[in-house]
């Protein structure tokens, strides 16, 4: 499938789902009655039309091999593995930062990121991760006085 056809079908599909959801929105009994629905309906219709138009033109036109969609799930497997691990790590960071505290959580996520991206340099990665979290804590937490969680090591922190 070509990139344009994929984009067109994606837009038409998302636009349709959005349009139907907009149709189901409740109407106000007074004031700006159709207000909350009208704009989303127009946007949904525009997405469907643009998507259908792009798909239509693409089917009529012969696309070259260069235009074929390739997300690289097979050819760039290593890239996708890194993306998957960082995605999980990022979400885990958000969920655990209050419990672990800013410094521990930031060191952990930086360690994951550096180990994935800068393979084979354990000492360097640990140094970068620890320094990054401490410097950012000093910068944002102490200098700019943002409220940052201290977490598990609250009593061990000298600052």
């Amino acid at each position: 499938m070509s990139k344009n056809l994929f984009s067109g079908l994606l837009a038409a599909g998302v636009g349709l789902a959005y349009f139907i959801t907009a149709l189901l929105l409740p109407e106000q009994m007074m004031g700006d009655r159709l207000g909350p629905k009208v704009f989303p309906l127009i946007v949904g219709a525009a997405a469907i039309l643009a998507g259908a138009g792009l798909s239509f033109f693409e089917i009529w036109k012969k696309s070259t091999r260069k235009d074929e969609v390739d997300f690289g799930f097979k050819t760039e497997r290593d890239v996708w593995v890194k993306i998957a691990v960082l995605t999980v790590a990022g979400i885990f960071y958000g969920l655990s930062i209050d419990f672990l505290g800013f410094i521990l959580a930031t060191t952990a996520i930086m360690l994951v990121a550096t180990l994935l991206i800068n393979k084979g340099h354990l000492k360097q990665n640990i140094t970068v991760s620890v320094l990054f979290s401490i410097v950012s804590y000093l910068g944002f937490g102490i200098a700019l006085q943002l409220s940052l969680p201290r977490g598990l090591i609250e009593n061990l922190l000298p600052f």
Partner: peptide, 14 residues
């Protein structure tokens, strides 16, 4: 592509 630009705009508006 103009149509792709319009699609991107509708996604942003959504």
């Amino acid at each position: 592509s103009i149509l792709k630009g319009i699609i991107a705009i509708t996604f942003g508006l959504m």
